[in-house]
Amino acid sequence: MGLNRFEYIEASSIPEASRFLADRPEEARIYAGGTSLLLLMKQRIARPAYLVNIKKIPGLRYIDKNDGTVRIGALTTHHDLEFSPLIRRWLPVISELEPEVANIRVRSTGTIGGNLGFAEPLTDLPPVLIAMDARIKVADESLERLLPLEHLFRGYYETSLRPQELITEIQVDLPAPFFGIKYLRFSMGSDKPLVGCAVGIRIDPESKLCVDARCVLGCVGPTPLRVREAEEALKGLPYRVNSSAKAARIAATACSPLTDLRATEEYKRAIVEVLMRRAVEEAFRRASSKLQG
């Protein structure tokens, strides 16, 4: 179906966009690639009266590294991430997962800021970024603040941002030495994942014991879910089949997937368990492989 009528505004700066959003909190939506929003508009699920295109705002599309932090501008596309040598060098887990995100056309237009800000639950990047303790920078007309990405998500398509706030940057600190991360997604004939699972493991180079862990699930609840209990189950231990199985079972219990037309809740939990087990093993392997490297 064609799109409903709406007014189209091109913002030239963050304050300008923020001001517009502040004035019309109910009616205006940010257009930052539009890959998800236009879909909802075509289905008449979203009917914004105004679209505020922020893609023409200069200076929001970059991938930099300084002081041990990778900074990604909010208008950076999936495609940019996929082929960025800097990302490949410093955050290879992202280069690895990007070819599987949606399809090439969505990646060409979809932006990372849009992806995160839309808070669509069936998506790949958030669990990985949360597993790397990513932060986002948000701004309104006059103020900027940093918050952990984990705190952005509130519910299905719902974030903690105020209506006039926009995501401007994503920050990821370079992984510590002896840190390994693996993201696994399970999908069935679809561009969208059914379950996503990111595991980060940092080991002590001497003892080879896990000193820190991140276990983050995607698609199995209203928001990406960090399973701290599973992380605890891994800490202080070397890689063991039993402990990874235990962490996996914890994760499968902790998440809150819904039965939908693609699979039942029960099945999604089963997949969480399998992915988590496999991801823990691979994350450990990656962390250990750095011992030689």
């Binding site: 879909l39 069935m188 004939g189 679809s190 561009d191 969208k192 037309l261 693609r262």
Partner: peptide, 13 residues
């Protein structure tokens, strides 16, 4: 019919 579209009705790719 709750999956009358290609996002929810998947075809071999």
């Amino acid at each position: 019919l709750i999956n009358p579209n290609f996002l929810d009705y998947n075809l071999a790719r």
